[in-house]
Nucleic acid binder design. Structure first.
Lengths: 336, 336
DNA sequence: CTGAAAGCGCTTACAG
DNA sequence: CTGAAAGCGCTTACAG
């Protein structure tokens, strides 16, 4: 009964202390001052559990990502957490390790903790899991889930725009023979990127050669193997776009191992703009995934929903090409 | 009053529902069954705020790290969170961005949220900030803070052991001229690593040459510059140990740029074993920081303390050298 | 502008 | 083995 002590010391009722605490209007300045002094003197800290029990809100948001160890996520987490902190919201954070069962239990845990809202920032989702939050009446937002965009709030990202930019860069350098390293086509997100890439190719009237498309596991190792496959083709592409940076790094290593100089003999573009993109040699040109903006949009949407504000349908976020040192005119062209 | 509904439905008192919920003994099996059925039928989820208000514990732990974007931390966060989840503890997570003021406010926020315990896994700490938790009576643990180890629970890491192992490896390859890239000597942690390195050198009777010790900013860029400085020395070392992997990566790039082949012309060893260590070319030999074990020790210590168990003084965790492709016998030796 | 009091949803001695 | 009831620390109509 700690607010009671403060009330006693300030010679007011607990109601008044509560009003001062919450900055409600209609407290005489002199009274408020007395209360503030009492709070300070007693080092009083309100009990958030009691408060939550009363008002039914916890000022706790849940954030679920696929994998902390994936260097894609830290920036997203960072951005989300900073915004939350600024609004006095605490974040409970967890990751699914790409496991839909863990998504299910993560959402359940968040509901049990009675968070006010949940951001599901995983690459893969499952409706079953999401339905739990819907039933509990907890606002939720997804990251770029095309298929579910009509059923759940969603932060869309326009991958196509990114690939178009990358392609235009390669074309302007003189490349026409362009390969692609895709992710496992069982994943919706990987299919989305591949489709976006081939669409971009076609829109420039370039023929899509299936033998110049290799599949990797989205990790460095997969990129290496995929690039080895592409290098074995004859003819081989003069430029390769990888659907994520991790595979682009693997591709770079494969080129190294085959004594193929990047960018002189082969141009390479990644996707995501992970911190490693600047750490490899040569520094990787890559399409930056606007993940800070994704986090900001997601938080904003949840925050507004929790406040009872209506949320307008959002336009897709645009990725942009970051040109570094892994692209150059094709070798043939240079020699002319 | 939701436990009341369950109680009604099961024809028992709320006390009995509570007992069943918490798995307390002394409830007739038949009664418990009725309660369980009612819980299931009503999709009842207990309110953690009400529970916390009553019992004074929240099953919430705070985890504070320096920087999510630093690839050192995700594994630590991952390990800590997994252990917590296994015990039904939720983690509120935040990072200080190396800012002691933010450490202060982070700890304050955690106290306001009435977490049961706090793991301060930052490289730098400040007693002022820590005192808040002490005053609030909240158990706390630090990561390898030599200076404060006697005052606060601490998970020590034996850097020296790591450097000794690295050095022995280099010596066995035939190196005698060994340089070091240290972090800013204003940081306690960076001084610790440098002292550990020079101690290891001396213990092998090797003279410490100050001109072979360069200082970097702990980031890639700093490693590059530091390595440039070392490469300008004459004579120059045949092997260099960097006090973290980020700087080792920078050093690798500097060598590349100067057309110095690693490991043929120069051996290089990092510290930490970040994911990037395997992504650069050549893959970096490095001293693995046992950060998963640090997280496990930290959690274990807090968990035991919260349970009221006494915690024995722990021995230091040992880093170990991971040999990859950035080390080889010195060039001179090879030619013979 | 301020206070008395009910109530949020649990747990836990206490009693039987 | 089970229940009646107090109380954790707040907020919020309601009354004045």
């Amino acid at each position: 009964m700690d607010i009671v002590q403060v009330a006693k010391r300030a010679n007011v009722s607990t109601a008044t202390v509560s009003r001062v605490l919450n900055g409600f209007p209609g407290v005489r300045e002199k009274t408020a001052l007395r209360v503030h002094r009492a709070i300070a003197e007693m080092h009083y800290i309100p009990n958030p559990n009691a408060r939550s029990l009363r008002v039914g809100r916890t000022r706790l948001f849940g954030l679920i990502v696929s994998d902390v160890n994936n260097p894609f996520f830290p920036e997203l987490i960072d951005a989300f957490e900073s915004l939350a902190t600024a609004e006095g919201i605490e974040v409970i954070f967890t990751h699914t390790n790409y496991d839909l069962k863990r998504l299910h239990s993560s959402i359940r845990r968040m509901i049990e903790r009675s968070v006010d809202a949940i951001a599901v920032m995983t690459s893969e989702v499952e409706e079953d899991a999401l339905q739990q939050a819907v039933q509990a009446g907890i606002p939720m937002v997804l990251m770029n889930q095309r298929k579910l965009a009509h059923k759940y709030p969603n932060v869309p990202v326009d991958y196509s725009a990114g690939f178009r930019e990358a392609l235009e860069h390669l074309l302007s350098l003189g490349h026409r023979d362009i390969g692609f390293i895709a992710g496992p086509q069982s994943l919706d997100s990987a299919r989305g990127r591949k489709d976006a890439f081939t669409a971009a190719l076609k829109s420039h009237g370039i023929h899509v050669r299936n033998e110049w498309i290799a599949i990797g596991d989205l990790r460095v190792e997969g990129g290496r193997k995929a690039m080895d496959a592409l290098l074995a083709r004859s003819p081989r592409p003069t430029a390769v776009v990888a659907s994520n940076d991790l595979m682009a790094v693997g591709a770079l290593q494969a080129a190294h191992a085959s004594r193929i100089h990047v960018p002189r003999d082969l141009s390479l573009i990644g996707f995501d703009d992970l911190p490693i993109a600047t750490m490899v040699h040569p520094a990787l040109s890559t399409i930056r995934h606007p993940r800070r903006e994704v986090a900001a949009r997601a938080f904003d949407l949840l925050w507004k929903t929790v406040q009872g504000e209506s949320v307008a349908e959002a336009s897709a976020l645009q990725p942009h090409l970051v040109i570094r040192n892994s692209t150059a005119p094709p070798a043939g062209l240079k020699r002319r």
